[in-house]
Amino acid sequence: MGTALQIKNLHVEVNNKLILKGLSLNIEHGEMAAIMGPNGSGKSTLASVLAGKEGYNVTKGYIKYLGNDLLKMPPEDRAAAGVFLAFQYPVEIPGVATSTFVRTSLNAQKRNRGEAELDAMQFLKLAREKAKQLEMSEDFFQRAVNVGFSGGEKKRAEVFQMSMLEPTLAILDETDSGLDIDALKIVAEGVNRLRDDKLSGIVITHYQRLLDYLQPDTIHILAEGKIVKTGDKSLALLLEEKGYQGIDGAN
């Protein structure tokens, strides 16, 4: 195994307000970690900082991914290094077909890593295969990125992108929000299909339901900008029963 991601004493300000206040977290290769926590505890901030969004000011601490100082890398280099964020609110891009977008992304990453790019035929073959697994019809390849997609379609499209880009660190930011039970199952199965000893994951969620499908290795409670409790899946069950009030340090 070995540590894939190391976050140490992370302090992050957004608009001069301190949101993450000394967050530390280690994730092993192949580990799926769930992060739960009350609204406003900093879960989405963590996701954004990991992916490299602007406007997040790291005042203290560091993030190392596969030995690299992640905070020094622009978002595109992080992606090429294997970081993938499934957005809580996937962004609409009118005028850009989904297949063009995914192919451009995949080949940009490959170019960045010095690998051979996929031609149109190779790409289409792969995309068809992955779309089928996610029970997505192919006509969405030609639709503009996320434009006119339902909530479920958007999340499914995120998992589709993830399966095409084959990251080594997947961050799922409330990927279960807005999904009905059937869509949730398809999305979770899609994620499970990608799991192997190389893929580490951070699953941000409010609900036990997604964790039932994903069976994370560890569960971390984030409150007031820090990890206040770490445990196995029994922690999620305790949470479901007693709420954050029932967990030491989480209120």
């Binding site: 602007e54 978002p75 964020l85 891009i93 992304s105 940009a108 880009l165």
Partner: peptide, 11 residues
């Protein structure tokens, strides 16, 4: 939109 594209590896 810019961040979304960049987060997928596009410069």
């Amino acid at each position: 939109q810019l961040f979304y594209l960049r987060s997928r590896g596009i410069s």
